[in-house]
């Protein structure tokens, strides 16, 4: 039996068609009775997740931006004193951190009238005056350069 003959036989199967009733009822069920929700939910969830991703990215950039800006304001010396002794610069940086801690304590201490615990802490703050003097000396030294 030749291959061409077999191919011809296969070609003849093209005449097979689905029943008209089946085709009509299947189409009806498919397009008009199948719930649309899964597709819409997919599209909706896609748009929601895209919106959330963009929103999170924007918030992140804002935080990075704010962080950079606050860093510049906290360390005014670093962009202007290019010839400053490296050791002095790092010590000034450490001291600025200490200043921040003290500022936090000051904010805490302003709440003296309502919080009895704050009053107890005032004594501790006053005992650390020696550190403040050291800070003043180093700052004077830095400004005089």
């Amino acid at each position: 039996m030749k291959e061409e003959y077999i191919i011809k036989q296969l070609n003849s199967l093209k005449n097979i068609e689905p029943g008209a009733d089946y085709a009509a009822s299947s189409k009806l069920k498919l397009l008009y009775e199948t719930p649309q929700k899964p597709r819409r939910v997919f599209l909706l969830s896609q748009s929601l997740s895209t919106t959330l991703s963009i929103g999170l990215a924007i918030v992140l950039f804002v935080f990075i931006g704010l962080g950079s800006a606050s860093n510049i304001f906290r360390n005014p010396l670093s962009p202007t004193f290019t010839g400053v002794n490296q050791e002095l610069t790092s010590e000034a940086g450490k001291l600025s951190d200490t200043i921040d801690i003290h500022l936090e304590e000051v904010r805490y201490l302003t709440d003296v009238t309502t919080n009895p615990l704050v009053r107890a802490n005032i004594q501790n703050v006053e005992e650390n005056n020696s550190t403040d003097e050291e800070i003043d000396d180093l700052l004077d030294e830095a400004f005089n350069l």
């Binding site: 199967l13 097979i16 068609e17 689905p18 299947s26 189409k27 397009l31 008009y32």
Partner: peptide
């Protein structure tokens, strides 16, 4: 989500897929 468009595709490909 255009069901009419998919319907036309369905009508074209139904005999082939069914066969």
């Amino acid at each position: 989500g255009d069901s009419e468009a998919f319907g036309l595709l369905y009508e074209h490909y139904l005999p082939k897929i069914y066969r």
